[in-house]
């Protein structure tokens, strides 16, 4: 991961881009908050710490080289996401249970 990011960056220019994910407190998932530039993963973590957790915003940080993130194509969003729209039976409210039946 770091090798790829590093090799793609020109030595002379700016550092590679990393995506930053932060867990704001215990029990929550990491969430994307932004990016930093860094020459390697170790410094990317430190840069993320110094940039995105100055106001106690986090208890854990992940960084990932931006080039290693694969994203779905918005042009195919219909094919990707719309087929889920009519599968209402996946949701509990689809089922009618009489009110006097408890704990279900």
């Amino acid at each position: 991961m770091s090798d790829k990011a590093t090799n793609e960056a020109s030595l002379k220019g700016d550092w590679a881009l990393w995506e930053v994910f932060i867990r704001t407190r215990g029990g929550l998932s990491h969430r994307h908050v932004g990016s930093v530039h860094a020459p390697d993963a170790e410094l990317a973590l430190k840069h993320a710490r110094d940039t995105y957790t100055r106001r106690m915003e986090g208890v854990s940080i992940w960084v990932a080289a931006s080039t290693s993130i694969s994203a779905s194509d918005p042009a195919h969003a219909d094919a990707f996401f719309e087929p889920a729209a009519d599968k209402v039976y996946r949701h509990p409210t689809f089922y009618n249970i009489p009110k006097n039946i408890k704990h279900i």
Binding site: S2, T6, N7, L11, K12, G13, W15, P39, D40, L43
Partner: peptide, 20 residues
């Protein structure tokens, strides 16, 4: 800052090669 940015990038490349 050019030499600083370059040094860190060069170290990362060297380290990746050593690890490989």
């Amino acid at each position: 800052g050019a030499w600083v940015r370059e040094a860190a990038a060069a170290h990362a490349v060297k380290k990746a090669k050593r690890n490989a």
